[in-house]
Design a binder for these strands. Structure first.
Lengths: 259, 259
DNA sequence: CCACCCTAGAGGTCAGACCACAGTATACAC
DNA sequence: GTGTATACTGTGGTCTGACCTCTAGGGTGG
């Protein structure tokens, strides 16, 4: 009737490797930061060729679950969760993501992140947040440093929200936005105002006031968006990149496996 | 001082392939659904070995940008945008994602999706949405069919929101939730109530009432969550899967490349 | 006209040699 | 003794080319 086949990228051996490692992570044998055995050895122990093993590892590395370091070894990722850095930009060109859409998503997610953080942040988060606010003020004359601590502030806030999934989504958007920001921040003049906003957001979180935290975060982001001239276009035209009409197909295709 | 190296998975050849294909997609040479040349031939034209080409393709396939079909060929993905199906579950076991967190994210994203859809949906979306509502009512006695149209309804709503990024994030969460739902829906008794909710949401969107659409969607999701007994635990214990304490490190590590 | 089988074309796997990189041990010069 | 240069070892990266498996389509016999 409809689709029967599973379009998963589950090529025999590849998935075998992926599932094996997944299992090792699930039962705790492998923890973030751990190193897996050398390819030659690991391949032998799994009774597959090194090439196949590498395919599987490549798969895991592509989505950020593992990190491969030439000449050193392969490790389980340990940084903040994220859905493939490159993934986002690739998906972007493929589906025509636009800047205003990124900001819209950021506004939605981060304002909720702020609200949740206000409700759930622990002492240690308050401390870390306060430190970053201080660093931000201290970096007012150095745009590049300012941006670093700005990013750090938002990342800590993500963790304070107590929802790693939301944090991971935010991280994905943020890293995609980073390059663009790095360029504009340089010629930014009112970093003082931005610093002040961070401080106010921190105070709202500190005071466990979700409503205020959300409001301030929204205000902060709208200001940031305006500063980069990336508001949503009133008309239907592309801001950056080529316009991509692409007949919008209400594709029912590939409904969640089997049906 | 801090990190200097770029931890990107950019192994020479691999990235070379990825960027090449990315370029082909950007300049329109490759469109969703298109087939790329056979590996042997493509590899020769790029002056790299077939193995390297395959590594690159595997990378792209892993994040859902390309689809490989054994014995047929390799194609550019054309379905709804999504950040790697497997990616999510892998990230899940790695960072300890929990059910209530997935619901929380879904609640946040989808309620906003509904609000946006109410503001921006076009005629064609209204039509498609109405059709699915009808299908949903028609499937009240068939849980499996019901679920299919339920998913379709939400997917169309995502497209109607006019923000493909948000839609992609939603799709990622949804596909992860799908399996779990498939099990519970079977023994669900009040599908009628759910169907009614979909109809009301549709009407709110149709009436271009963002506030009401958001409110109804939130209500709908909370009911769904309650039906599956996945509210957020009052205490600090795990619902499913093993508890994973994992010393919460405020990892500053891997700040967005170079600094 | 339909069912079955065969085959061409495309991806999947394998084996083993060799290259490139990172970190450490060693040797030589001062 | 100290320090720097070099060699070695371990680990991932790439290449070749042969062979396996799957899919789709066309040919052939019933």
């Amino acid at each position: 009737m409809l689709r029967m086949k599973q379009d998963l990228t589950d090529t025999h051996r590849t998935m075998q490797v992926v599932n094996h490692i997944r299992a090792l992570i699930e039962n705790g044998t492998l923890q973030p930061g751990d190193k897996i055995p050398p390819e030659r050895e690991f391949a032998r122990s799994l009774n597959i060729s090194r090439a196949s093993l590498r395919t599987g590892i490549g798969y895991l590395a592509a989505m950020g679950v593992m990190k491969v370091r030439h000449g050193v070894g392969t490790f389980v990722a340990d940084g903040p969760a994220e859905f493939g850095k490159a993934s986002f930009s690739l998906m972007g060109v493929l589906h025509g993501f636009q800047s205003w859409q990124m900001f819209e998503v950021r506004l939605i997610i981060e304002s909720n992140l702020a609200a949740l953080a206000a409700e759930r942040a622990k002492e240690e988060h308050h401390t870390a947040l306060a430190e970053e606010v201080a660093e931000i003020f201290a970096s007012i004359d150095s745009p590049s440093d300012f941006l670093i601590h700005d990013v750090l502030f938002h990342r800590i806030l993500s963790q304070a929200s107590g929802n790693p999934i939301l944090a991971a989504l935010m991280e994905t958007i943020t890293s995609a936005l980073y390059d663009k920001r790095r360029k504009t921040v340089e010629r930014s003049t009112d970093l003082r105002e931005s610093a002040e906003m961070h401080r106010m957001i921190y105070r709202a979180i500190r005071a466990r006031d979700p409503v205020e935290a959300r409001r301030l975060m929204e205000q902060h982001l709208r200001m940031a968006q305006a500063a980069q001239g990336m508001e949503r276009p009133t008309a239907r035209k592309t801001i950056d990149g080529i316009a991509r009409p692409r007949t919008l197909q209400l594709d029912k295709g590939s409904a969640p496996s089997r049906l």
